[in-house]
């Protein structure tokens, strides 16, 4: 009873704030795990380098601004495209040689690639972060009842959600998506039905990488652009993918946002809980539903 009256508008405001912070984090997890899920589904490669591509996306935006004076909005398209080109090269020149081998090789290759990309960027740009300005249109805050919340962050939530819905639509409702789904479900059989699955593999990888690059661009105005910026989100993203179910599109998106909010709400109780909760959830999911919340084991 004593706690009731103590719930001030200040507490409510903090909780609201944390929910939105969670949604912002979730927006990044969703974009990143969506890319990972698509790549895993099609290539059976656990792309450890996903965080590095995210970082490259942020740097691409930063360099476009610095070297060419190209601002945030064009960068939102150009930077992911540039990162996707790197992805195409990686798939064609490196990953392609590992298909049919133990998935561990793909994991090791992308792990090595991560170190290479990170350290390469560190040699060139140093470790301290570079600032990237918030686009002027999205400066300032919007009032959300009890709190005021930065407009840019609200944009990140909405934009990421829109991208996720668009990707979901493309995969679930278009012919292109149907071919991708079929190839993910039964790769060999799909070839026996006349579909050149191999050609779709490169495109799918590039697309997943572009999503990571896009997340990087979105992160640039919020987080310092630095060579190691991808290291932390990628760990949580792996937890998200496991929770959502390896290779499940809807699972990646729902689990992404859910994990973001869960971690932020945990932080209200105790800041140390933020990441612990996520990994505890992952452990529970692995024990109770090893295929993940949205996954099915047969699809492998």
């Amino acid at each position: 009873m004593r706690r009731g009256p103590r719930r001030t508008s200040m507490d409510l405001g903090y909780a609201t704030l944390q929910v939105f912070n969670g949604l912002v984090n979730g927006a990044f997890y969703a974009l990143l795990s969506l890319g990972l899920a698509v790549i895993f589904g099609m290539l059976r490669v656990v792309n450890f380098a996903h965080g590095a591509f995210y970082m490259l996306g942020a740097f691409a935006a930063y360099l476009l601004q610095l070297e060419l004076g190209i601002g945030f909005w064009p960068a939102l398209v150009l930077a992911p495209a540039a990162v996707a080109l790197v992805g195409i090269a990686v798939e064609r020149l490196l990953l392609r040689r590992l298909y049919g081998l133990d998935p561990l090789y793909g994991f090791l290759l992308t792990f090595g690639l991560t170190l290479l990309i990170q350290d390469g960027m560190r040699v060139r740009f140093g470790l301290q972060g570079q600032p990237y300005a918030t686009p002027t249109e999205l400066g300032g805050s919007l009032s959300l009842g009890a709190i005021a919340y930065p407009a840019y962050r609200l944009f990140v939530i909405a934009f990421s959600l829109a991208v996720c819905v668009a990707v979901w639509y493309a995969i679930e409702r278009t012919r292109l998506g149907m071919v991708v789904r079929a190839s993910i479900e039964r790769r060999d059989l799909t070839r026996a039905f006349g579909i050149s699955v191999d050609r779709w593999v490169t495109g799918t990888f590039a697309f997943g990488i572009a999503l990571a690059g896009l997340a990087g661009v979105l992160a640039a105005p919020m987080r310092n652009v630095s060579p190691t910026m991808g290291a932390e989100p990628v760990i949580l993203t792996f937890a998200v993918v496991v929770i959502g179910g390896m290779g499940s599109i809807a699972g990646a998106v729902v689990a992404g946002f859910a994990v973001g909010v869960l971690a932020s709400l945990g932080a209200i109780v105790n800041p140390a809980l933020e990441n612990i909760l996520v990994f505890a959830l992952m452990a529970v999911v692995l024990l109770v539903r090893p295929a993940g919340l949205f996954g099915s084991l047969e699809a492998r």
């Binding site: 079929a182 993910i184 479900e185 060999d188 070839r191 039905f193 006349g194 579909i195 699955v197 047969e298």
Partner: peptide, 24 residues
């Protein structure tokens, strides 16, 4: 030939497990 090329050349396959896609 690759499986896809054979299919396009006119082989219609009805596999023993029926090969129906659950995600389609």
């Amino acid at each position: 030939w690759s499986p896809e090329r054979r299919a396009r050349a006119g082989l219609g396959f009805v596999p023993d497990d029926r090969g129906i896609y659950a995600t389609l």
